[in-house]
């Protein structure tokens, strides 16, 4: 009986993916992409991957959705269908279609007959007591494979630097007009503290239940974005050195801690069992803070880039 739900979710996800790419106009494509993100989040919840469901819903459908809506305005102003419609020539499309079809058949046969590798569940469960946290996914993320997580906190920072590399940095601190609507202002003022509280709750929860650095980071980022939208560019108007400190805190402290313990004769990112839980919590908080700051900065940059405020490009000192 429960197979019905899974097959319906799977078919819905595939249908949304296809519809999203075939949608004639951009707004349809964007909102179908949100639906795809939500269906995927439900699929993760159905597969027992609660951490991933929160991350997918918050980051992929939430944060990226906000960027897409912000970009949609510029792209939909100009003739969104583009000259000559959105289809390349019939021949090349047929060719690509055939190639992808062959790829699909081979992929399905491969995925269908994957031998059962057994996975690392047992190993992860046995080493859980030595990892200092009780929730297995947090143990993997911040102890067994903490090198991956550290690099990945760096990738978010690099994406922000890359964003600055595409154009002037002055989009970042463009004055934001205060929201005129009283109700909107009140709602934002009410919602932002709730968001920060729920983020902190999820962060602390990460020790025993699904939750943790990235989920908290995105909720805090959402709070920062709401403040920016409401007209309080709290992050953009911060002192530059404080902003840099906040952005590099997560990535830098993680490394600093690793070096300290390496100097003390362990391997990089090896935490002694006694303080492992506390250290992981500290590292998680700083990583969440710096990712939230990076996400808010990315949105602030995006918002400053919107068309009507982009006068001809004036080089400013960095």
């Amino acid at each position: 009986m429960s197979l019905w739900i899974d097959s319906l979710l799977a078919v819905l996800a595939v249908f949304l993916a296809v519809r999203c790419l075939l949608a004639p106009t951009l707004p349809q494509c964007v909102f179908l992409f949100f639906a795809f993100g939500l269906t995927l989040a439900l699929a993760w919840a159905r597969l027992g991957a609660v951490d991933v469901a929160i991350a997918e819903a918050a980051i992929a459908a939430g944060f990226l959705g906000v960027l897409l809506i912000d970009a949609l305005r510029d792209f939909s102003r100009s003739r969104s269908t583009g000259e000559g419609g959105d289809r390349p020539s019939r021949v090349s499309q047929g060719l690509v279609g055939a190639g992808v079809l062959v790829f699909l058949v081979v992929a399905i046969e491969a995925v269908w007959r994957v031998p059962n590798g057994g996975g690392l569940t047992a190993l992860a469960a046995d080493n859980l007591p030595q990892s200092g946290v009780d929730h297995p996914v947090t143990a993997v993320l911040l102890n067994y494979r903490s090198y991956d997580t550290w690099l990945e906190v760096g990738v978010v920072l690099m994406a922000l630097l890359a964003l600055f590399a595409t154009g002037g940095r002055e989009y970042f601190c463009r004055p934001v007009v205060r929201a005129v609507d009283p109700l909107l202002r009140q709602v934002i003022l009410l919602f932002t503290p709730v968001l920060f509280l729920v983020g902190a709750f999820l962060l602390y929860l990460g020790k025993t239940e699904p939750g943790g650095a990235f989920q908290a980071a995105v909720l805090w980022g959402a709070g920062g974005i709401l403040l920016h939208l409401g007209g309080w560019p709290v992050f953009a108007s911060m002192a530059p050195w404080l902003r840099h400190l906040l952005l590099t805190a997560g990535f830098g402290f993680f490394l600093l801690l690793g070096f300290l313990f390496m100097a003390g004769g362990g391997a990089l990112f090896e935490y002694p069992l006694a303080q492992a839980g506390l250290l992981i919590l500290v590292v998680e908080t700083l990583a969440a803070l710096s990712i939230a700051a990076a996400l808010t900065a990315i949105f602030a940059y995006f918002n400053g880039m919107s068309a009507e405020s982009a006068e001809p490009f004036t080089p400013a000192s960095s």
């Binding site: 690392l120 190993l123 992860a124 080493n127 102890n143 067994y144 494979r145 903490s146 090198y147 991956d148 362990g266 391997a267 990089l268 990112f269 090896e270 935490y271």
Partner: peptide, 13 residues
């Protein structure tokens, strides 16, 4: 070699 985080390969990096 360098065992990151002190964990052996199948679990660690």
């Amino acid at each position: 070699i360098h065992l990151l985080g002190g964990w052996a390969p199948p679990l660690g990096i």
